[in-house]
Nucleic acid binder design. Structure first.
Lengths: 224, 224
DNA sequence: AAATCAATTTTGATTGATCAAAATAATGTG
DNA sequence: CACATTATTTTGATCAATCAAAATTGATTT
């Protein structure tokens, strides 16, 4: 239906919206996310706006239309179901599946995807804790009940929390998370937080102490 | 490494060679196989020859070089392992997996492929009976021991045979094969063969009688 | 040998996606 | 307000892959 390039544009805008309440995404941010030049984004955005997939506010940014959001959700669903599949069924390394899924999401047909969904038992979150859009394109969106916005940078000290989501798919960060045991599901207690020095110390059940930067802590969502 | 387009060119030449002893493939046949115009093939072939992937004999056709054959075998390995995976693990319809694999073969990384291979227990043939090239690119080639060249059009009458391979991946033919029960592994006995009328009658164990065209029968390899 | 035919190659053009560099607009600073 | 800074858009060009239509070549027929 759409080229991989188009799918990537749409997905990038949707994911950006996931983390920032659906506001317009500046052209520069899109260029950054897709690793192309700003001029390329302007050209492409105008074409996609012409197709009714997004609304272009010149010198401001872009926003998905209804049609664009639906298409983007379908891609994101593929991405996250594939990630889950790679970890659960193929037992691949948790930290590496993002890149693999990046390629597969454009090649997996709806029929294959439904078989994968079935095999996995209709999961609602992927291995990083990111919500998987439904087949109808519904997402546990930014305002949704599942999105706590509570992170290791903001949660109460000395209480037991459960890691819910890792909001940063860079391999280096994911490796770090794996090594400290802070994967989704892990039980954790923040023992000390030093805003001045920018560090957060915590105790991970079954995996000992961990010290992480304050900014990084803000990318680890917790719950309960 | 290579674009999907390049991979498709190489794969088409290798598959052609599989069925015709590695002779040069005429440009027209390649254009046909890839569903592009002859001029396009000439242009592309010259580029690939420049990359050392194939040898172009002008006005004659093309042949894979060592490097080209290795690359093509890798693609074919992906294709056939993916097909097997789709049938075995995802329980998809036998007749439809070829098209699915056509897209996935270009997106599956070596790492993912090795996990799939492992999961399936290192199979040597795919669901249609086609041999799966090894990771090193070795193939049970046209001269190989596994390639009987014996088909329902040429095997002895009234003997029990076992279907070994279906040499025609068009969905319509595969559907026909599924419906008559003539899938690889089926036990079959040719009861009558009429070259003049061009029909072959046979008895499929557990699935009754089947009448097929002589040409079609030549695409069903048998063994034992 | 001349004429015909089919396969192949050339030619000139198009499309999607990209870039670098120049032009433009908006925004903030003194 | 004028000037500098930053984001965005334009412009002109490139690359991979393709096409249609014309030209060429080799083989086949007459």
């Amino acid at each position: 239906m759409f080229s991989s390039t188009v799918e990537n544009y749409l997905k990038a805008i949707l994911v950006h919206g996931e983390g920032s309440g659906g506001e317009v995404m500046p052209m520069g941010a899109l260029a950054e996310a897709l690793d192309v030049s700003p001029g390329t984004v302007t050209t492409m955005v105008k074409a996609l706006a012409g197709q009714g997939l997004l609304a272009h506010r010149p010198r401001e940014g872009v926003k998905l239309t209804k049609a664009g959001r639906a298409a983007a959700a379908a891609v994101l669903r593929k991405h996250r179901l594939v990630e889950t599949f790679l970890v659960t069924t193929l037992k691949m390394d948790w930290a590496g599946v993002h890149e693999e899924a990046e390629a597969l999401e454009h090649a997996v047909s709806d029929r294959v995807l439904e078989r994968i969904d079935e095999l996995l038992g209709h999961p609602t979150v992927d291995p990083h804790g990111d919500p998987i859009p439904s087949a109808k394109g519904e997402m546990a969106g930014p305002g949704g009940a599942s999105s706590s916005r509570l992170t290791l940078a903001s949660c109460e000290l000395k209480t037991q929390w459960s890691v819910a989501r890792i909001r940063d798919q860079t391999p280096a960060f994911l490796n770090f998370i794996r090594d400290t045991g802070l994967k989704p599901g892990a039980r954790v207690r923040v023992t000390r937080r030093d805003p001045a020095g920018g560090v957060v110390c915590c105790e991970v059940k079954g995996a000992g102490e961990a010290v992480i930067g304050l900014g990084e802590a803000g990318n680890i969502e917790v719950r309960k």
